[in-house]
Amino acid sequence: MHFSRKSLGIPYAVFLLVFVVLPLLVLVFYAFTNGQGQFTISNFTGFFTDPNTLGTLFYSLLLAAVTTAVCLTLAYPTAYILGTSKLKSRSVIVMLFVLPMWINFSLRITALKEILTILEGNLAMYPFLNAVIGMTYDFLPFMILPLYTTISRLDGALTEAAMDLGADRTRTFLEVVLPLSLPGILSGVSMVFLPAMTNYVVLDMLYNSTYIMGSLIGSYFSAYDWHGGSMISLILLALICIFTLLTGGSEETARGGALL
């Protein structure tokens, strides 16, 4: 009996069909129907006319943007130092940054909650700050790894060439290192920004009152408004697609992710 190479892909194709394509079609169906099963676009127009949903969208964007910025600020210098060092043990140090991800997620967040409670007294006092801390804590490795990968692959001769041609350290960094690490920055940003838009479990576990897109969708479904919830999910999906296209595909993302 002969298998063609293509038939090796069948199990995944089946999985894809049952758990990704079909649910997506169901999602589209619900998004464009009302309670009576009739076609409607009121769910769509409703989203863009309701100040609550729009407010949540902008708030989510803001939270994701701030989280991404904080992650980038923390991760870039670290990745730069590690990526350009001659230490033999640098891969071990990189592993240390990934190590927290091996610990159970809920355990980590619970620990974070306790720490924040000790520091702040009452978690409810700084909802936005806590949301940023929680997400940064969770997503930081996803920023460090692609940055580290890109920077450590930078040819050291290029920075030497820049200095040889008269650029001091600052200009070498701005004109050579930074532009060449842009692919790493883009993939790090998309790997942090996208989950930060949608992941509300972190906030839930921190008893955080901050309301983001993920929580909004969750609330629709728990109120049995599958039609409204589906439409919001679909809009979010469209936004993510646009964002991914803008940051230039996911080749680097895959590379950084492969390290995990």
Binding site: A157, A161, D164, A167, D168, P179, L180
Partner: peptide
Amino acid sequence: PPYKRPINTVFQRYALFPHMNIYNNIAF
């Protein structure tokens, strides 16, 4: 430091800046 020496280097593996075109490489 290297950037203050009136000396320039041709590197073994050329070390041209891949994110710049030829003009910008030479103009650097």
